[in-house]
Design a protein around this nucleic acid. Structure first.
Lengths: 143, 143
DNA sequence: TCTAGATTAAAATTCTTTTTCATATGAATG
DNA sequence: CATTCATATGAAAAAGAATTTTAATCTAGA
């Protein structure tokens, strides 16, 4: 059993919930491949792999995965939620290609330092931040 | 006639559209007071000032204002559009209070410089960016 | 005056997410 | 191993929420 499963099981058990095949399938699928994904995308992707779970269960399980800290919700200027892994994933920022949707991650400690300065100046207590650059990835820029 | 009105009129005329009282009222209201606002908010605010325009017209006019470059759409992690002024408004970033919703703007040329570096490293052609810090404003932090 | 384009209120749409409810099942217990 | 039951599932319906369309009526501006 990997680390993700362990975290999920612990959460499941602490809440008196059940570790069902559906939850297991979703958990595995989410951590097998995806960088960023949407609920609908996950559903379709699972179907392609003959893992048929209902939309309701997808949504219910994603909520659990967020609650137990394995996933994080991100919104990329679109109006629906995207998810990304938390575990084994240090904080990072995003480059979002506005043509093909590709997402490149990057991180740099300067951002954190900068955030602290800004917050001091504005008497603001930061909880989190998002730095996102929209533009064209190498491939789309060529075209 | 102020600069905003001029820009809007030019656009209106170039497209063979009409400068109606409703459009004028919306234009004025948008640039009279608001920093950031939502369509619904604008509607309610206008009603308080006895400017009664329909929701449909609000949406249609906001779309025009975005097209002619006077407004910009921003999404703050919620799922509906917020708007902000473009004209006379240099690029800036946002501090968003997750308790009261207050938005503080700030700007710093380091962000631009930083963006350039990141893009070079990732072979990315930036069009725009967003740096947003979520947390608690001074007042909410005290409570 | 004339008419393309605009307005309104209400209905419809769109799209994501949640709820319903009948049925099924994990896992604790006897 | 069978029972029990709280919890889970699936399919479909409903909800939610923002935005757009409809259709009747109106009007700015040539």
């Amino acid at each position: 059993m990997n680390e993700n499963e362990k975290v999920f099981m612990d959460y499941i058990q602490s809440k008196g919930l059940k570790f069902t095949p559906e939850r297991k399938a979703i958990l595995n699928h989410v951590f097998e491949s995806h960088g960023h994904f949407e609920a609908e995308e996950l559903l379709i992707d699972m179907r392609k792999n003959n893992k048929r779970v209902s939309k309701a269960t997808i949504y219910r399980t994603l909520a659990l995965l967020v609650k137990c800290g394995l996933l994080r919700e991100v919104i990329f200027g679109e109006k629906h939620a995207h998810y990304e892994h938390v575990y084994g994933h240090e904080h990072h920022e995003h480059l979002v290609c506005i043509k093909c949707g590709k997402i490149i991650e990057f991180s740099d400690e300067r951002i954190e330092k900068y955030q602290n300065e800004i917050c001091l100046e504005n008497k603001f207590k930061a909880e989190s931040h998002r730095f996102q650059i929209m533009g064209y990835c190498e491939k789309c820029e060529e075209e």
